[in-house]
Design a protein around this nucleic acid. Sequence first.
DNA 1: GTGGTCTAGACCACG
DNA 2: GTGGTCTAGACCACA
Lengths: 135, 135, 135, 135
Amino acid sequence: MSRGLSVDPSDAVPLWKQIEENVRRLVASGALRPGAAVPSVRDLARDLSINPATVAKGYQRLVEAGILVVKRGEGTFVAEKPPAPARGEREKELQSGALSYASLAVTLGVSNEDAVERVRGSLGFLRRKKKDETS
Amino acid sequence: MSRGLSVDPSDAVPLWKQIEENVRRLVASGALRPGAAVPSVRDLARDLSINPATVAKGYQRLVEAGILVVKRGEGTFVAEKPPAPARGEREKELQSGALSYASLAVTLGVSNEDAVERVRGSLGFLRRKKKDETS
Amino acid sequence: MSRGLSVDPSDAVPLWKQIEENVRRLVASGALRPGAAVPSVRDLARDLSINPATVAKGYQRLVEAGILVVKRGEGTFVAEKPPAPARGEREKELQSGALSYASLAVTLGVSNEDAVERVRGSLGFLRRKKKDETS
Amino acid sequence: MSRGLSVDPSDAVPLWKQIEENVRRLVASGALRPGAAVPSVRDLARDLSINPATVAKGYQRLVEAGILVVKRGEGTFVAEKPPAPARGEREKELQSGALSYASLAVTLGVSNEDAVERVRGSLGFLRRKKKDETS
DNA sequence: GTGGTCTAGACCACG
DNA sequence: GTGGTCTAGACCACA
């Protein structure tokens, strides 16, 4: 196992995006701490049996988002500083994520409270896990 | 107005999927009752200024899902007995969506309350929209 | 000529970045107006004798920056609205550009006033040209 | 301190180029006078915690440019007569840089004054930095 | 060894 | 026709 990184080629969401989300999740949960190295592009590509360029694209997005940093010739690492307070651009990203999730919930016929509760639960799960890993 | 059906061409989600989701929502909310007719493919296409094939594709998915039925020569109608979505699948999909959104919020450095509030807001927005369409 | 778009394969700056800058320049100067179509990925790639994926990468960056918009199945167009006031993220981009230019000027042994004057001149040139093209 | 020489590993520009530019600047500003010795490759590498090969590459470029000269067995020194850069080339490079920056500013929707002010600020920052290193 | 760029060409989704 | 994704593999810059 590559530290919990996995992809599903039959999924509609692009492989590079699956990788992005996976890493995001690992960082959010503290499984990947600031300064820690993520698997090299080639290694992860081999483990997942996909093309290195695909992995690179996923990493690239995270670099642009400030989640990862590249040290040339050394590898890719989790950024030391939590990505800036994030006004503006990222505001939109979060809002879009919220709407997307809400839409899913409504489509699935779930009550507002149930939908909200699940988010609250996931947040708690991540924060708790992060605290554990950090300590 | 085509009964509250609208699409956003600049949205990342495919037009046919927007149509599918819109109809699904209208049916779920009762705005479109079992047995009711949905707009004809070419009418809706004209109203939305999009390609009829795009509308057809959205309807097609709904027919395959058992939400709509086609009566040849008469038109397309809401099925009498919309099939209940598999509980297990829904559960997993929603849970996964919640975790995904939570991870995004955490990596963006957003507080739990802010993250939850945004979902609540989005849910309210969607329900309100649905209500408008229903009335 | 593809509307003034050209690249220099022997240049150290990546082809996709050259394309990005070229388009940015054409938009800034008004040669490409809001709503106008940019050359299709394949066409431009053929004209420049480079790979479509390379062109696509350049366009992609501009889409993410809000300069271009993609209409699926139709093509790529200059965005209608001037990219949002741009606080935050783009702040950094501009600052980085300024520092980069200043560094070049200092390295070249140019006086502050000369360096500033050249920027002022270029800005004037672009604004004037834009006004002409728009009118 | 190695005479004000410093590098930023997280910067996009290659370490060897940062070194090259630093030295070039120190020479241009007079902090390093003709005939003066520059730090030895291994000393500087140790001070900066980087690979000696990286330092060597930066020095090499400067030797090729006639800025530095190597006296075998003694060390590396600032050339007595630093060659004047070709006027024409400089001119074009600077002008191109100015236009590039101006285009960026315009597409970002920034006012002329704001754009100019940022350059002025960056220039001031660099000159001040150079002065510090000189003193 | 690392990541970044580019190519050639396939396949898919969309309109 | 459009752009988006992915692959396989080459080459380069960097440490």
